[in-house]
């Protein structure tokens, strides 16, 4: 049903359909609301990692200029578009062709050139300076294999950033019982058994030849919403490099 990854032809009805889908993805009060709220803290932390890793000026608006970035599980482009604004040549991949079509439609209207592909990261070649994979690994069937596929896309001196829910009573209560129960996140989004702890993820990265250089938690409170925190028990971000 979707257009080919090479960007072939898109018929008008499909364009309208994916436009509507993109509109829902990008509606901060729509079904992706939690991802929108996560964006400022997680992008802020990602920026810190970029500055530290490449010695970029924190005031520079295009610290990724001249670098290639890959966003895996890009959805409609909530992370890929910011990476493009920070100057990177961005490739976004997602397993769902309708997400990729929605992402393309939105990037076009935002005036951003992003290479979106409906494919599996394991089927991708080419190397990237930055690989991001946020709120995705908890959905894949074989995370160990998936981490190796991510690591294989990382070029010399590259940076990998991952985020995912922790596996704790707290994350179960918040993300499944509460958020899905209240309909803030679509039901069936998460499967608690597939959640991964920071140590487990660190071990998978080590197996793939990567080293965790920094990590942080994302906590939620009524007053502040999502914010970076030393508490990793709900959700966490993790940054890894080679060796």
């Amino acid at each position: 049903m979707a257009s080919e990854a090479d960007g072939g032809t898109i018929d008008a009805r499909e364009a309208a359909h994916f436009g509507a889908l993109a509109a829902d993805w990008w509606d901060p009060r729509g079904s992706s609301a939690p991802l929108h709220q996560l964006n400022p803290p997680r992008l802020g932390w990602l920026r810190e990692q970029i500055d530290r890793h490449w010695g970029a000026d924190p005031r520079d608006r295009r610290p990724l200029a001249g670098r290639r970035a890959l966003d895996v599980g890009c959805g409609a482009g909530l992370v890929a578009e910011p990476l493009a604004r920070l100057g990177a040549a961005v490739t976004g991949v997602d397993a769902a062709p309708e997400n990729v079509a929605a992402a393309r439609a939105h990037a076009g209207l935002s005036g951003l050139a992003i290479d979106y592909r409906a494919t599996d990261v394991a089927a991708l070649d080419g190397l990237f300076d930055l690989v991001t994979c946020l709120e995705v690994i908890e959905h894949v069937p074989d995370p160990r294999f998936f981490v190796r596929a991510l690591a294989a896309r990382l070029g010399e001196g590259g940076l990998l950033v991952l985020s995912t829910p922790n596996r704790t009573p707290r994350s179960r209560a918040f993300l499944i019982d509460l958020a899905e129960g209240l309909g803030r996140i679509p039901r069936g989004t998460h499967d608690y058994a597939k959640f991964i702890t920071p140590d487990e993820l660190g071990a998978m990265l080590a197996e793939a030849g990567l080293r965790v250089v920094d990590r942080t938690g994302i906590a939620w409170s009524v007053g502040r919403g999502f914010a970076l925190s030393d508490d990793l028990s709900l959700n966490y971000l993790l940054c890894a490099t080679q060796g």
Partner: peptide, 18 residues
């Protein structure tokens, strides 16, 4: 400024909410 340095769309409702 925070939004621009994070690569966000400066009209993003999340920024305006803040």
């Amino acid at each position: 400024v925070d939004g621009a340095r994070s690569g966000l769309d400066l009209g993003d409702p999340i920024l305006l909410d803040r």
